[in-house]
Structure formats: C-alpha cells, structure tokens
C-alpha cells in the first residue's frame, strides 16, 4: 500500500510496529537513530515517517526539524510517537513541524486512522 519509514531505537517497539504495519500491507523501512532516519528519508523517499522522540544522537524533534527544512523531504508527513504524554512535548513536536502526534503505548487502530488520513491525497 504505502512506503513508510519508522524511526525508533527500541528494538521491540520497532519490531512490533513494523510487523503490524507490514501485516496491514505497508512497506516498512526502519531506522534506529535520528541521523540514519534523516538519511533514509532522503534516499528512499517514504510516503510517511513515524518518528520516535527520544533517539540517540539526533533526537526526534531535531530530526523532524531537519526533515521539514530540506526540500527533498519537507513534503513527507511525519507522525511523532512518544512515551511522554506531556503537553509541552506535543507542542514542541508541532513546533518542530510534525504533522501529527501520538503517545505510546500505541493505540494501533488510532494510529492507523492517523496514517490513513495523512496518506490520502490532499
């Protein structure tokens, strides 16, 4: 269905989410750090990025800012995922330029809805 990039450093979360997305028919690319995520987004041109906030090296906010600042990746919708349910985190994520936001543990149905909404051609 769609080509998604999942940037997540926690192995189990990455595995789980990627498998569930794959089962829904999506092609899932994964990255374990902010830098690799940004690099992969540039080369692979996914249709949507799922971004964890607490990442080694480049954190999720910074990675989002970089992706939204580059011509090649600025158009790709980004959904930020975080374990912190703090309002500030959300505001910071939106300030960094993300398109949507969800908290972990992921409510898969809700996340799928968000992904589908963002993937629909405008």
């Amino acid at each position: 269905m769609a080509r998604l990039l999942l940037v997540e450093d926690n192995e189990m979360n990455r595995d789980m989410l990627s498998r569930r997305l794959t089962r829904r028919g999506h092609e899932v690319l994964t990255a374990v750090s902010g830098h690799t995520g940004v690099a992969l987004a540039g080369t692979e041109q996914p249709e949507l990025i799922l971004m964890d906030l607490s990442l080694p090296d480049l954190d999720g906010w910074e990675a989002t800012r970089v992706l939204k600042g580059e011509d090649r990746t600025a158009h790709i919708p980004i959904v930020v995922l975080t374990a912190h349910a703090m309002a500030e985190d959300r505001e910071r994520a939106f300030a960094a330029g993300c398109d949507d936001y969800d908290t972990k543990p992921v409510d898969f149905a809700r996340l799928m809805e968000k992904i589908e909404r963002l993937l629909q051609p405008a």
């Binding site: 926690n10 189990m12 979360n13 789980m16 989410l17 498998r19 569930r20 089962r23 374990a83 972990k104 543990p105 992921v106 898969f108």
Partner: peptide, 24 residues
C-alpha cells in the same frame, strides 16, 4: 515506571498483534 512501561508496551503490543494474527 519508565523501566516498567517499556516491557509492558511490548507485552501490550505483541499480544494485540498476536490477537490479530490469530484471527488471520
């Protein structure tokens, strides 16, 4: 609580996933 939540997320996620797969 952070340490507890991480494995718990896996438990919740995988069980949900298995539930779907079992259905499939």
């Amino acid at each position: 609580s952070h340490e507890l939540r991480t494995p718990l997320n896996a438990i919740i996620g995988y069980s949900e996933m298995l539930e779907e797969e079992a259905g499939d």
